[in-house]
């Protein structure tokens, strides 16, 4: 053992240490991404069900499309909802917008024979109107958006039900759609719905807007510290109004998709999306108090929700306990997420 050897050994050790620190650096850089925790949560939940459903077809194409279809429809709404939450506001009216859209289109086109593209245009107008109402009223009154959107949720659900029963005599109106518009909104390739593409497009577009555009910076600033944002010259009121319109339009999109996929509209459909989109956002790493989050993370959040909600039925376990397991798995996902975010912020 000469001094040379010792030196060599030291060099190797040094190199190893450098390697380790490089891995640590890459890891910590990865962990700094707000979507990393959400990705880990999705993978963990997927692994859990891959094992728990062994041989039941959860990993087969049919099983994968099953949870993707659920995640897609949720993700389309959850991503804009997350942007709004990052901007510091909530929207409880999206469920009513989904139900009202489905009734509007089914009644107009199914009952009165209005061309489908016109009823879709009407639904989009409705969405913009609801978004404007929520945004302008929240800004003008200074009341919490929780209250304002609660008002529009109730008012819209009531009018959708009332109109449907008045015009069609029933809260469920049938509508069969074929042709190119069906392909765009409810097309299928084997068991995969085209909504999966919409989901991916909405998520990527939202991520680009949030992280690569000035408007995205405004959103983060508005939700992070509205006062300094205003002092820096950002029109926080306009930012919020735009975000409210986006959530309503996303709800209109899901309403259109479901009307075509399920051959009709129901006034009471969609309310569950209010809660589930917030769940997906939180699993996806969005802070409830605003200013932090990532659309890609929320896309993973929606995926986790879809995997858990569909996966449980592939296990063949007694379904009475499904909600308990759902709750526990969501808790685990959120805790893991939190852990990663803290580690990321302290690293």
């Amino acid at each position: 053992m000469g001094p040379m050897d010792t030196n060599n050994e030291g060099a190797v050790r040094l190199a190893a240490a450098a390697d380790r620190s490089r891995i640590a650096l890459i890891l910590s850089r990865l962990m700094r991404h707000p979507e990393f925790g959400a990705l880990v949560g999705t993978l963990a939940v997927f692994a859990f069900f891959a094992v728990a459903t062994a041989g039941n077809g959860f990993l087969a194409w049919r099983g994968v499309t099953g949870w993707l279809n659920v995640a897609a429809e949720l993700g389309i709404v959850a991503v804009p909802v997350a942007l709004l939450m990052i901007g510091g506001e909530l929207d409880l009216s999206i469920g009513s917008v989904i139900g009202a859209t489905s009734v509007l289109i089914a009644t107009a086109s199914g009952l009165y024979g209005v061309p489908l593209w016109i009823s879709i245009a009407l639904a989009i107008t409705l969405g913009v109107g609801v978004g404007l109402f929520n945004g302008v009223l929240t800004i003008r009154t200074g009341l919490p958006s929780f209250i304002i959107t609660l008002v529009s949720m109730l008012a819209l659900a009531g009018s959708a039900l009332g109109m449907a029963r008045l015009l069609a005599g029933t809260p469920n109106v049938s509508l069969k759609v074929e042709g190119p518009l069906r392909a765009v909104f409810a097309g299928r390739w084997q068991q995969a719905n085209v909504s999966i593409l919409w989901w991916a497009a909405v998520s990527l577009a939202a991520a680009w807007v949030l992280f690569r555009t000035t408007f995205g910076n405004w959103v983060l600033a508005t939700g992070g510290d509205a006062r300094s944002a205003r002092e820096a010259g950002i029109r926080t009121d306009r930012v919020k109004i735009v975000l409210f319109i986006l959530t309503a339009l996303a709800a209109v999109l899901v309403g259109i998709i479901q009307t075509m996929a399920f051959n009709g509209g129901e006034a009471t459909r969609g309310q569950v999306y209010v809660f589930n989109s917030i769940i997906a956002s939180v699993i996806g790493g969005v802070l409830l108090q605003g200013g932090y989050g990532s659309p890609i993370g929320v896309a993973f959040g929606a995926a986790t929700f879809g995997i858990v909600n569909v996966g449980i039925f592939y296990t063949g376990w007694n379904s009475d306990w499904a909600q308990l397991l759902l709750g526990l798995l969501l808790l685990a996902a959120v805790l893991a997420n939190n852990l990663f975010r803290r580690a990321a912020l302290s690293a």
Partner: peptide, 20 residues
């Protein structure tokens, strides 16, 4: 309860049960 009013989730739940 989390599937009430969401036809997509109900379809996939029944499909999953039929697979298992």
């Amino acid at each position: 309860y989390s599937s009430q009013g969401n036809p997509q989730q109900i379809v996939q739940a029944i499909a999953g049960e039929l697979m298992s």
